[in-house]
Write a protein that binds this DNA or RNA. Structure first.
Lengths: 115, 115
DNA sequence: GCAATCATGCAACCATAGGTTGCACATTGC
DNA sequence: GCAATGTGCAACCTATGGTTGCATGATTGC
């Protein structure tokens, strides 16, 4: 049931990293400096996050002259999205089941009332 | 675009808290002690997590004798699941678009080749 | 070629969060 | 009444997200 890779999840769990991924996806690529210009944290913080994202394989980097460009690894992000979806649907299923049970109890009570 | 409640997200972002929610859903309710028996952390750690989950409204608690029983707030968890799904589908959409663009470029290249 | 510039990398430091141990307090069961 | 059990509180440790400061390396303009 629990096929969750906590590393991947915690990588996308951080709000700053989620926004970084958003930006990288929207703009195709970016550097620590370019990302920090659009986020309310310093370049160094961004650099650390890029390190984390790189280690779990969500982004790749390539040196380009004096700058280092990062871009999203689409396959890996797709895997992460799939995990999100799987957790969501697991909870959804449980919630549905609870709802059905609650309704069954309600129905039983209603019938008891009408006797 | 970003209607994400970071509080809610980070509440379910922690792996231990996710497992706690799983257990609470599966068993209906639980105490800090009962949960800690099934998780690899101490009761006190669980208690702190329950505090977090309580503050963001994902669980409710009620004192029952000497123990305090917690149970999931289904409506709030449903909201959280919806947010998960929304982030997932946003990224999915972007990935799809990137894929289409990539395919378009591929097609253009193929046509250029055949001339 | 060289100086100024710009992006990066590295180090020290701070605050918060997840985790632990230890202990005091309330409730329950015999 | 007393031992056992569940809880709550406090101190402490470590990792992590964040900061500032500085050194280094590639670019550009003259």
């Amino acid at each position: 049931m629990n096929t969750i890779d906590d590393e991947l999840w915690s990588a996308i769990g951080d709000p700053t990293r989620r926004r970084m991924l958003d930006l990288l996806l929207a703009e195709g690529a970016g550097t620590a400096t370019s990302l920090s210009a659009r986020l309310p944290v310093t370049r160094q913080a961004i650099a650390k996050h890029l390190g984390v994202l790189d280690r779990v394989g969500l982004v790749h980097s390539a040196a380009a002259g004096r700058e280092r460009r990062y871009q999203v690894d689409e396959a890996q992000l797709a895997r992460a999205v799939a995990q999100l979806a799987s957790v969501g649907s697991a909870w959804d299923a449980r919630l549905q089941r609870i709802k059905r049970i609650a309704e069954a109890i309600q129905r039983a009570n209603d019938e008891r009332q009408s006797n």
